[in-house]
């Protein structure tokens, strides 16, 4: 058994992040760390260092699925690891992200009212006003609700596929992972290799 590293405990950040969202939705902004860090690694040094070690979600799924044994450890279906699905899911995720930014902008301009809901799976609104008592700019709160929705939805997806397949099967179709790998491959100039 390999010894644990400090970064194996980064799953604690996932738990803290989602817990904080129950108390004050504005903490959801901190989720941007999980957006910018992988991009900085990829664009800056052409590395997947974030995915490889410091991703709190990867560590959470490893801890729950691997160490705690909640995963069935079955192979993911072939379509799930296909380029079409991975890039398709990335495109879908980006579209939903753009839609969320659009809603934030509408609230900013006053064209729409702040909706104090967390939307699961881009369609199921869950009342979340208990975590917001006002005080912030409405657009900043709207972004927080939208961002938390995205983080929670993807975490649930990750946990579901962790249970059904391998512990870190989320990593196969994680939009950030797909995007940073794309950036790294472009940076490395990795030519399409014929598989031996």
């Amino acid at each position: 058994m390999k010894k644990s590293h400090w970064y194996n405990y980064l799953w604690i950040w996932s738990v803290v992040y989602f817990a904080m969202g129950f108390f004050h939705i504005l903490f959801a902004w901190l989720g941007l760390i999980s957006f910018f860090l992988p991009l900085i690694f990829a664009v800056g040094v052409g590395s997947k260092g974030f995915c490889n070690r410091y991703c709190d979600r990867g560590q959470l799924l490893r801890a729950l699925g691997g160490q705690k044994g909640f995963s069935r450890r079955k192979d993911v279906p072939d379509w799930m690891k296909s380029k079409a699905f991975r890039y398709g899911f990335l495109a879908f995720f980006m579209a939903m992200f753009a839609n969320m930014l659009c809603m934030t902008y509408q609230v900013y301009t006053g064209a729409a009212e702040l909706r104090e809901t967390v939307t699961l799976f881009w369609s199921i609104p869950v009342p979340w006003s208990f975590a917001y008592a006002g005080g912030a700019e409405p657009w900043a709160a709207q972004f927080a609700f939208g961002f938390y929705s995205m983080m929670l939805t993807s975490a649930i997806l990750g946990i579901l596929t962790m249970l059904a397949y391998k512990p870190r099967s989320w990593c196969v179709y994680c939009p950030m992972g797909t995007m940073t790998q794309m950036i790294c491959r472009m940076k490395a100039g990795a030519k399409k290799e014929s598989n031996p």
Binding site: K48, N52, R53, G58, C171, G177, E193, N195
Partner: peptide, 10 residues
Amino acid sequence: DTMLCVACGA
């Protein structure tokens, strides 16, 4: 299989 590897580092 380098074509399908997602480079997650697991």
